[in-house]
Design a protein around this nucleic acid. Structure first.
Lengths: 184, 184
DNA sequence: ATCTTATTTGAGTACTCACTCTAATTTGAG
DNA sequence: CTCAAATTAGAGTGAGTACTCAAATAAGAT
């Protein structure tokens, strides 16, 4: 993988992989369909990736990183901002949100690598929410804030989960309703 | 399936199916492992079920029905009761809870039958929560109560979802924290 | 232009899956 | 006890899976 062609092929494969995971889940994603979608033959796939698992892992890592809130921010956003960002992400990047949920559920069986990554990402998000909450409600002690943030983030994931079953589910509405858990 | 032996075999198969779905997910569950676990050969399996899908559907239907709160109750339980029942279910019947979440996530791809069943069950639960909430807070209008109930149930599912990733996650603690969404 | 190395080709392999079929065995109603 | 029907045994089928490999081609450093 030192020529331009290889890198481009690699990108196409990863994009196809991500799309398929969102649509079909981890197990429904096959080398055949990935290759067809990416316009590549199995030989090329295995020239660039060691295994299906490695490709999926790579694609999912990228997807999870993409979910991460902008790390530029330095403790400036409010809880409202964070909830809005969450809702926007779920509504605009439904595929990625679905990948996230799917991985979370499947991760007990699949690689501990992914499981760890999901957990770390979750923790990061909770921390971010907790900090925003503390700025808004400085009288709370840190543990209480962290607790509430954890409850809120889990609850938001529950809303996203339900959205995967019911497309018409109003994520924004319920997300903001749940926000009150933290602030009251 | 008219002799006793057939019924017993059927029960063993359904129990194995349910266990495997909880452990391995829908796609990870195979005829081979179901049969091994149930002490049965493929011929017997297909004497009793038309297909893998039918067996899974049957097992899951039973599991979801088992999740349903006691239908005897007639509007007597409080929101606290319902949250407690939810928590007890997740903690004592972790396998079933996991089946529920797995089916919910996979259902977009798998049968609409399951999807519908999950949605109906969800609606029933929301209704139950909304009624309890109205008894507690009669000043709320019905729509508002239903909204809050829906938010709470989704949030609780989010907690359960997280529990499938992190076994140490304290479902009870966060469930009760989230209860405040509805009551305040 | 040359020539090493990356990339692509695409048929092929070994394996697992859901599912079938025939023959043997067991069940229990009459 | 009899015997038709239910149940079980277990090898086998065809489709689909992840993955391989030797040969052809394309890329780009020199």
């Amino acid at each position: 993988m030192r020529y331009k062609a290889g890198l481009e092929t690699r990108d196409r494969i990863l994009e196809s992989t991500r799309t398929q995971i969102a649509r079909l889940g981890l197990e429904g994603t096959t080398i055949k369909t990935i290759c067809e979608d990416a316009g590549v033959l199995p030989g090329s796939f295995y020239n660039l990736f060691d295994s299906k698992e490695q490709a999926i892992l790579t694609a999912v890592r990228a997807a999870i990183d993409a979910v991460d809130p902008d790390p530029q921010h330095e403790g400036k956003d409010t809880l409202e901002d964070l909830v809005n960002a969450y809702v926007r992400f779920v509504e605009e990047q439904g595929d990625l949100a679905r990948v996230y949920i799917r991985i979370a559920v499947a991760s007990s069986r699949s690689s501990p690598e992914l499981r760890g990554r999901i957990l770390r990402h979750h923790e990061g998000r909770v921390k971010r929410f907790a900090e925003a909450l503390l700025r808004e409600r400085p009288e709370l002690d840190e543990e209480e804030a962290h607790n509430r943030a954890e409850a809120l983030v889990s609850a938001l994931n529950g809303v996203t989960l339900h959205r995967t079953i019911d497309e018409t589910f109003d994520v924004g509405h319920f997300a903001h309703l749940l926000k009150t858990v933290a602030t009251t």
